[in-house]
Each structure stands twice: as C-alpha cells, then as structure tokens.
Design a protein around this nucleic acid. Structure first.
Lengths: 213, 213
DNA sequence: TTTTTTAAGGGGAAAAACCCCCTTTTTTTT
DNA sequence: AAAAAAAAGGGGGTTTTTCCCCTTAAAAAA
C-alpha cells in the first residue's frame, strides 16, 4: 500500500521538524517536505513538484498565514486536504479555517495517536472533526447575530485598512473608491457591528482576528 | 561518555512528544520523561526518581507554569539547569524567566541544530544566551525609552481608556482631568510610541498586551 | 420582469481628533 | 536650595471623523 504524502507547514521549526520525525515514524505516512509559511507552499506547488494528499498546517505564520494559504489551496488544488494544527481554540479562528476549506482542526496539545488517526480519517473519509470543531459550528448556527459571516469581501478589506493609521481618505485611495463611499462602508459596519467609532471597528476586527497584530 | 539526562515539560503533547523523538535521536541525550506541567515535575522529583541535568521547559502551561516551576527548581534543585522553550518573545516574559533562574531561552522557531547546541552549552558551560535574550537585557538596562517602564501609571490608565469608544472628553471625565490635559497625554504618547493617531495608540496597547481583548 | 439589494457617490454640518506653542504648580533630582 | 522633570491646564487653529439624508447604476432575487 502506497504511503500518504504529507507536507508540514509551520513556522516553528523546532515543532515542525520534531513533528516530521513523529509522522515519519509511521510507515503509512511520507513527509514530502517541511515549510515555514504559506508562501513557501505556493512556491513548492508552483514548481510542479510532487503533490501531497494532506497538508498539516499551522495557522499563525508570518508572510502568509494558514487561513490565506488554505483558501489558496481550495482555489488551486482542491484535491489537497488541509488538516489545521493550532494552539488557538477560539471560535472565530476555527470557523475562519473551516470556511477557508480545512478538513480538520486539531489543537497542539493532543496525543500523537490522535494525529495519526486524524490523518488517516482525512485521507479516507475526507474530513476529521473533533468535538471542539462541532461545538464551534453549533454555536455559530444557532446564534443569529453571528457577526463574521455577514461581512462581505470588500467590507473586510475596508475593515483591515481601518486598523491602520491611514485616514479614511487614504483608505479610499488604496481601495480606489471615493471618500464618500468609504463613509458608507463605515456607517454600514457601525450598524452591523453595533459600534459607534472607528476604535470600535478596530477592537472588533482584532477580537475576531480579522486583523492579526 | 554518559548521556545528558533531560526532562521535557510542555503542555502541548504533540510538540513535547515530537520533541522527545527529536532529542532522543542524539545519542548524547537521554530523555527521562515528558511531563505536561510544572506540578508533574515537582511530583516526579519528589518521588526521588532519577534527576535530570537539564529541563526543557515551556512557559505557558496550565496549573503550574514555567516561571513558577523554574523558581521552584532554583530553590529545591539548583543543580538542575532550565532551558526555556517558548513561542513568546516579549521582553517581560524573557526577563521573568531569567530572573526565575533559566539558563537559556529559545524560541520554538529555531532550527533543531540550535537546540542541540544549546543543550550541550548549558550542560558544559552552564548557560546559553541567544541574541534575543541579550537584546532584552540591553533594552532593559540602558534603553531609557524602553516602552513599558517609561509609561507611567496615569499614562497607562489613559492608554487603556483610549482603547474604548469613549471620546477624549469622556476619558477626561473618567480620569477627572481637563480635556486639555488629556490632549497632553495623547500628544506625549504619540511622541513616545511614535504613532500619529488614536488608532496607533490602540494598536500599540493591544500589541503590548496593555489591554487584553 | 418587476422589485429589492448592493455598490458607488454626494451635500452639509457638528463633533472629535489632531497640532503647536504656552503657563503654573508640584514633585523629584541634583 | 536651585534646577529639572512631571503633572495639570489652556488658546487657537486645521483636519478628520461622525452623522443624516439623498441619488444613480448595476446586480440579484422574486
């Protein structure tokens, strides 16, 4: 039986290298490479190298984080399955990752055996969802004022720029919109997020990890 | 030559188990056990089991964290050397750990070879300090504009209120100061923190964990 | 195909934030 | 005891943000 090809993407070299050893111990798994951020994965795959079945992906990474990378994979290599490996267990991160297309979400404090099981499940069944994930989903479903889902792409873009020292005029330039249109975005978000000031927008964005500091 | 006995203390099982494999690959090292928090280490040592020369210690752990545990070791087993392994690189954590008695401080994004080198150095020379540690020390000692220390109580209070939807006028009321005085605080912080807008203050405060969301 | 929603833009005005330069009093250093 | 630093307050100004109410064109839904 052919082993499952895996790529590890994590900026904590000590962890990823150690994980490499751990995963490689199982003869069912074959680690193709260990990369330190999403950009490296994009480069790797662009070079027509061997494609993995599964990517073990960290979320917080410099340059290109796990969420962006997973989105990119869904667009360009939908057959590659992403298993998220993170220390974060806050709902918004989990949901962002699932929405981006992750097939599973594991915390780094799990036992190695669970990782072994999860990789196999993702490979055969296509997904592996732990209790933590299902709980997040349930919370979101029956909570109608669930903020994130109803923020559109362009609004997110605006929100991210709001969390900088740019004035709205500068944001308008960056987004190629009129300052007045930007005001509409602002007011729309004020209403949706139930805040009254730009500071409120920034706090929301950071709390929900729409921007990461 | 006798191998160096090591204990790994880290609550991220996936990491610690993987690290175990990594460290055990070197025949110079012998991992006695892997524990998930400081309390377990205290129990382990109390049972008169084999003492390690070196403890690889995480900082953020439930029940008994790395700083407390390192302090306890310094009191009770000063001959055991602690090498801190952390993802945090903020000055205050590093300093707290050094003050507690750690003989070295490594970030988890280092290359495994550096860990190998660090363990050997700690064992023979008694310490291993990377650039990140020395930089922290230097910053604290001779840098007068070392962010945290030179923010005064009242400025911190102001900064925290700045990270709310209160206007400066409201902040003035809360702090029982004139709005004009508040403006002075603002301008002083702009200069000190090298930002230009209230948003900049908020981002700084959150980044430095002066306010926690 | 009509209706509704979304995206884009705008006028005008009040409030808040930003900026620079200044005084007085108290506390701390030297 | 004199000098320096910190804490509090202010004048007068520009820019930015906030707010409300309005238009048009395109896209999506009914």
């Amino acid at each position: 039986m052919k082993p499952i090809d895996i790529i590890i993407v994590d900026d904590h070299l000590l962890f990823s290298q150690a994980l490499n050893g751990l995963v490689s111990n199982f003869k069912e798994f074959n680690v193709l490479t260990v990369l330190v951020n999403g950009k490296e994965l994009v480069n790797y795959l662009s070079q027509k190298k061997q494609k993995p079945q599964i990517v073990l992906m960290d979320i917080q990474m410099p340059i290109m984080n796990g969420i962006e990378t997973t989105k990119w994979l869904k667009e360009n290599y939908p057959e590659i399955k992403v298993l998220a490996l993170s220390m974060e267990c806050d709902e918004s991160t989990i949901l962002a990752m699932l929405r981006a297309g992750a097939k599973g979400y594991l915390l780094k404090d799990i036992h190695p055996d669970i990782l072994y099981h999860a990789i196999n499940e993702v490979n055969t069944k296509g997904f592996y969802y732990t209790e933590i994930v299902t709980n997040s989903l349930l919370n979101t479903i029956d909570n109608p004022n669930n903020k994130e889902t109803f923020l559109k792409e362009r609004e997110l873009e605006f929100l991210k720029l709001t969390c900088t020292e740019n004035t709205y005029k500068q944001i308008a330039d960056i987004m190629c919109l009129s300052p007045k249109t930007i005001e509409n975005y602002r007011e729309a978000l004020f209403a949706k997020l139930n805040v009254k000031t730009r500071i409120g927008l920034v706090l929301f964005a950071i709390k929900e990890k729409i921007v990461i500091l």
